[in-house]
């Protein structure tokens, strides 16, 4: 992969959307070499990340890891409801060389101050790239009945959460399940169990009668794996969780399952995989419902 070149950026306080668009156009035109063809802006999606201040640096790190794979327009929204009203922007153009040209993605980092934090849709809508899918990565557990959550889930095609970040498990899955008919949801915690689910599936038919599992992993992974087994096998499966940072092992009725082959994917790989999918995942939806039941 080519090295990323952050060619240019711009910061502004108390900015307007028109100003943001103007500055982006300027950054794009300045990024091309003099006399050369203009650089290309890649347009495969708009990617929104909702990151409250405590999640901001984690969000930036993940975005940096995958900017080259999905060099689209990214809107990083940082709500600051306690600050005075206003909108601050940090715009950066990230260009990657291909042959004698470069492909540029744009990262628009916006601090939504004061009341702006409760009206994100009106800020995001004018900045979406027309006719392309919109993904929203929501950091932390959403306030399920908040205006900002309702607004953003109303305009995006796919909501990406990581239920590992949620304190209120498994009850929060019931809240999430209410969204399934409104917006396509995917869960990074679920994606991280995929290697293990493939492994468990390979143990069929012996695994079919499993009654209890013990998961050494995050709480989200434990609940989702148990929910998945319950929903697929059609009978109850008891769950015991031994909390770990990552999924380290699964016991089936007291017997340790073998370790799945390959290495676990990193945060950027997992998010990147989610951005390649567009349709609902009925197996996840069933697992989340069964986890909450």
């Amino acid at each position: 992969m080519a090295t990323s070149l952050i060619e240019n950026d711009w910061t502004g306080e108390d900015v307007s959307i028109a100003q943001i668009e103007r500055e982006l156009a300027r950054l794009r035109s300045e990024s091309a070499k003099e006399g050369a063809q203009p650089n290309l802006r890649t347009s495969v999606m708009t990617h929104i990340a909702w990151a409250p201040p405590e999640w901001q640096s984690a969000a930036e790190e993940t975005l940096a890891g995958m900017a080259e794979r999905h060099p689209s327009r990214t809107l990083l929204l940082v709500p600051r409801p306690d600050d005075p009203d206003g909108l601050d922007a940090l715009l950066s153009l990230r260009c990657f060389p291909i042959g004698d040209r470069a492909v540029c993605g744009e990262v628009i980092e916006l601090a939504l101050r004061g009341n702006r934090a409760f009206a994100p849709a009106s800020i995001v809508l004018p900045l979406l790239i027309s006719d392309l899918p919109v993904f929203c990565r929501w950091r932390g557990e959403p306030r399920w009945d908040s205006t900002e959550f309702e607004q953003l889930t109303g305009i995006v095609d796919r909501l990406i959460v990581d239920s590992t970040e949620w304190p209120d498990l498994p009850a929060a899955y019931a809240q999430l399940a209410e969204l399934f008919s409104k917006v396509v949801v995917s869960d990074i915690a679920w994606e991280r169990t995929e290697r293990w689910r493939s492994l468990l599936a390979s143990l069929w038919p012996a695994v079919g009668g499993v009654q209890a599992i013990r998961v050494q992993g995050t709480r989200a992974q434990g609940h989702l794996l148990a929910g998945w087994l319950r929903s697929r096998l059609g009978h109850d499966v008891e769950l015991e969780i031994e909390e770990r940072e990552v999924l380290e092992g699964i016991d089936l009725d007291g017997q340790a399952a073998p370790f799945p082959p390959g290495r676990p994917p990193n945060a950027s790989d997992v998010l990147s995989a989610q951005l390649d999918r567009f349709s609902r995942d009925p197996f996840y939806e069933a697992a989340a419902r069964a986890a909450a039941a």
Binding site: R197, A201, P205, R232, D281, P282, F283
Partner: peptide
């Protein structure tokens, strides 16, 4: 059916 593996459904098994 008994030969069908319900756990394999939906998995992105290459």
């Amino acid at each position: 059916g008994p030969e069908h593996n319900p756990l394999a459904d939906g998995l992105n098994l290459r």
